[in-house]
Design a protein around this nucleic acid. Sequence first.
DNA 1: CGATACCAAGCAAGCGCTTGGTTTGTAAAT
DNA 2: ATTTACAAACCAAGCGCTTGCTTGGTATCG
Lengths: 211, 211
Amino acid sequence: MNLTVNQNVILESLVADNLVSDPSSARGRLLKEAARLFRDKGYERTTVRDLAAAVGIQSGSLFHHFRTKEEILKAVMVETIQLNTAVMQGAMDQAETDRDKLHALILSELESINGQTGEAMAVLVYEWRSLSKEGQEEVLALRDIYEQLWLDVLTSLAAQGVIRADPFVTRRMLTGALSWTVTWYRVDGGMTLSDLTGQVIAMLGLDQKPS
Amino acid sequence: MNLTVNQNVILESLVADNLVSDPSSARGRLLKEAARLFRDKGYERTTVRDLAAAVGIQSGSLFHHFRTKEEILKAVMVETIQLNTAVMQGAMDQAETDRDKLHALILSELESINGQTGEAMAVLVYEWRSLSKEGQEEVLALRDIYEQLWLDVLTSLAAQGVIRADPFVTRRMLTGALSWTVTWYRVDGGMTLSDLTGQVIAMLGLDQKPS
DNA sequence: CGATACCAAGCAAGCGCTTGGTTTGTAAAT
DNA sequence: ATTTACAAACCAAGCGCTTGCTTGGTATCG
C-alpha cells in the first residue's frame, strides 16, 4: 500500500476531470508556490508581489489568472480538499475491518499533512479566517464529505465498544492532534509516518486487543 | 477545586509582582482587547486603529504604552504564559497521584484555552509566526517551563505502563487536540470542561483501570 | 487573426508610526 | 488650602511607505 503512488494516480484523474489544476501548468505552479508562501509567512504577510516573484512574473500579471488574491487562497484550499478526499476514499476502499479503516484514515491524514500536500493542508487549517464568509462556506461544504468518512468509522468502533469516548469528540481531538504534527514532525527525524500512526493507535489504547 | 477562583487569586499575586498587567489598568485593558481582536481577525488584519478604537483612544496614543505593534502581541503572549504556568503549577500541587496530575493538567489547559484567558491562548497558538525571531525565542523559553510540567507526569505514567505511547509524542498530540478545542467547543453546548476532560481520559483509554 | 499570457507603470487606499502640543493626575512647596 | 511643578496620558494631523489591483499596450502561438 504505497500511498505516494496512489496519490499520483488519483491526482491525474482529478486533473483530467478539471477538479484540480495540473501541477505543471502555470496555474498549478502558482498554487503550489502560494501554498508554500502562505504556510511560511501567512496569507496576510504574503504580498501579490511575493506570489508573482515566486513564479517569475510581474505582480499585475497574477490577475490574469485570478481575479483577487483571496481567490488564490480559496483555490489552494478547494483543490487540496478535493485531492485529499479522493486519496482518503481510495485508502478506505482497500481496508476491510473498522480497525484497519481507522488505521488507514490516520495514516492518510498524516500523509496529507506531512507529505506533498502538506503546505496546502497547513494553509487549510491555519488560514481559515482569511477567507471571506462565502469562501468559508464553500470550503466547509467540501469538508463535510471528508469528515463523514471519519465519523462513519468512529461511530462503528464506538458501537463495538472498541473506543469509549464520543465519536464526534474523538474526531475533533484527532483533527487537532494530527494537524498539529505539521508544527513539529519532520521526516528526517528518524520516525516514519507509519511509526507515528502506530503511536496514535497506542495513545488511543487500541494496540492491545487485536481484532 | 474551583479553578476560576484559584486563577483570580494567582492573578493578583502576579500583578503584585509586576509579572502581569492589572486588567483594570489602561495597559491591561488594551492587552485584553488586543487578545480578542488578534484572535478574531488575526494579528496582521488588526490595525493599530482597531486596537486604539477598542479602548477609546487615538491610534497614535498607543505608542505611548508600547513602542511597536509587535510589542503588544508579545506582551499578550508573555503575560498569558506567566499566568497559566502559575495556575497550572497550583493545580498540580493539589494533585497526589500521577493519574490525578494528568487529569489536573488536562482540565487546567482546557480552562486556559476555553476560559478567561482563551482569547490570549488562541493568539499564543495561532499567531506564532507574526512574532520576530527574538520574540519567538523569548516566548519559547517561558513555554519550556510549562511543558516540563507535562513531560514529568507523562514520563512517569509511561514508566508505570499506564500509557504506552511515547511521552513526547503524547504531549504533542495532546497539545494539538486540546488547543483545537478553541475552534469548536462552546460552554453553552451542554458539555462542561469537566465532561470534556473525562472524554479525553476515555480517549486515552485511562478510564478503565482506576489507580 | 484572435485569444492567451504577459509587462510597465502607477493609482487610491490603508498601513505603522512620528511629531508637536494639550490635558490630566499627583504630590511637594508655599 | 492654594499654588507650583512635572511627568504621564492623550489628541490632531499627517508622513512615508506598502498594499491589492487597474490600465493600456505588447509578445507569443495555434
